[in-house]
Amino acid sequence: MRALWGLAGVVGALTCSMVAAAGIKDGEKRSGFDFMTRETQALQADDMANPGMLWVLQGEQLWHQAEGKAEIACAGCHGEASQTMRGVAARYPAYDEATGRPTDLVGRINSCRAARQEAEPLAPESDALLALTTYVAHQSRGMPIPPATDARLAPFRDNGRRLFQSRIGQLDLSCASCHHTNWGKRLGGSVIPQAHPNGYPLYRLEWQGVGSLQRRLRNCMVGVRAEPFAFGAPELVELELYLMEQAQGLPIETPAVRP
């Protein structure tokens, strides 16, 4: 009898972990926007009120500004961002031939600076880097995240999924512990969303500024009392890759506003 109960326990535990691993069902997929108050939604929806638009404007200036030893602007190669950058953010992170790894939009901007402009990389979370990233991502606003098609990215995405499900930190929690199993419930006073990346870079009221998805991922790691991965670390890009797959079909909102 005891053995039977033990077996039942193991089966139960396995079932629970399989449910957690399955993630968010398609019909239940909801942007973080849907979990916000009407006031914060209104702030995002109105470009005259959305504070993230200041970064978009700064990014537009930087787009046209010559940089580095090559003295060339982004626009020098890429022309009008409204045409050439449309849809790009919805496809990132993308496979980078040079490194044989995925790179996110931030990484692409800095590698473009190094290779084409012969300029120093912009520091993580610097205003200039956030502004350029926000400007580029903004060109895809309203476009749904397409299905993943590049087979070369699959192993990296799988690692991102593994990281998402790994318990870490002194509190021994995984991303999935909250964002898969308990979205919609409250942690402290805040509703737990489904961890979709479709609004980044975004203006967070708590930050009083625009920040990247990597900043948000690091915040959560600090929250569970884990050592956060460094900005630009392969693990963070792999997590981004997994989050984009999970958010497939949701529209890009950059610059989103979040509490």
Partner: peptide, 21 residues
């Protein structure tokens, strides 16, 4: 075993847990 309730009286320094210094 699958609870999200942390074990409050346990040191969880295992490799891969990345417990902050």
């Amino acid at each position: 075993p699958n609870t999200i309730m942390p074990s409050y009286y346990r040191v969880a320094d295992e490799e891969g847990r990345r417990v902050a210094t």
